[in-house]
Simulated scan of single mutants.
Amino acid sequence: MTGPTAQDPAPEPLVKVRRQGKVAVVQLNRPGKLNALSTALEQALLDALQSPEVAGASAIVFAGSERAFSAGADTSELPEMTPQRIAAYYRGSGSLYEVVSRLPQPTVAAVSGYCLGAGFELALACDIRIADQTASFGLPEVGLGILPSSGGLTRLVRAAGPAIAREIILFGERFPAAEAHRLGLVREVAPAGDALTVALARAEFLAGQPAMAVAWTKAAIDAAAESSASASMLIEQLAYAALNRPAGGNPE
């Protein structure tokens, strides 16, 4: 067996990053596995979020391919997961979904094709989801003897309510973009092949909004979902006071 030579092409990166103005496009690039989220792909996404191109962007679009945003977790890794390894996983590459949900920039998922399991959980971690007519959603984990555990269960309950979440998770059936839109899980359905184009347009608008107002508002919305009404109102008022400082001076 010979090693790599100077003529061998460089391996394709698991994640491709490009900038379009103020928007960073973070694209999953594991087409042979329908962008299945292995620990290596999750880590590559975490690394991409730390890159200057993404960290310096005013909005972020997450995308896959036309065939699949992501068909789910890489199930070939499941037999190796002991309780100890699972705990280490959530401290490592498995933290991806929480990192995405807490980004200060607005995030948009451009969904084409399969958006299943962990792929759906990644999309749910984004602020906005744009799906095209080819998109297919689902959480099949219960049928595998597990459950959605990367924030998908929690976010689905909060987005659609417990009754809808039970139906989606317990039955594990796939449903089309039109149904996801009806349930409020995607903002709009684009023509086939146009998810990324529409997502970029929405991200460009969000990138033009005042960055600090966007970041504080995102944080306040997340806090409101977990707080009493009085606590949420206080957070609103404190955030408003922090943002509304007089130019060049301190608030009185």
Rank of each mutant, 00 (worst) to 15 (best):
L124E: 03
E66I: 09
P13A: 10
Y89A: 10
L238G: 06
I168P: 09
A231F: 06
L78C: 01
D47E: 14
A223W: 04
E226V: 13
K218S: 07
P9H: 00
G248F: 10
R155T: 06
I235W: 04
V157M: 07
P106A: 09
K22L: 08
A73N: 11
V99P: 02
P191K: 06
A44G: 01
P246H: 01
N35S: 08
G117M: 08
L96E: 01
S95L: 01
S38I: 00
R18Y: 01
I169T: 00
E53F: 00
A24R: 00
V26R: 10
A40K: 01
A201I: 08
S101W: 05
F171S: 15
G3T: 07
P251Q: 10
P9E: 00
A247I: 12
P176C: 08
A10N: 00
K33A: 12
I60Y: 01
S232F: 02
D127W: 04
V23T: 04
E188R: 06
D127K: 12
L45E: 03
F205P: 01
F69V: 08
R202D: 07
R155A: 14
S70V: 04
E188V: 10
F175K: 13
T107V: 07
Q133A: 15
A211G: 01
I60R: 03
A241P: 05
L124M: 02
A123D: 11
T5R: 08
P106I: 04
N35T: 07
M1R: 11
G117V: 08
E80H: 13
P104Y: 00
L196S: 04
A211C: 02
R166G: 11
M81Q: 14
P191A: 12
A192K: 11
I168D: 09
E167G: 15
L122K: 11
S70R: 03
Y89W: 10
P148D: 05
Y89C: 05
G138S: 08
Q105T: 04
R155G: 13
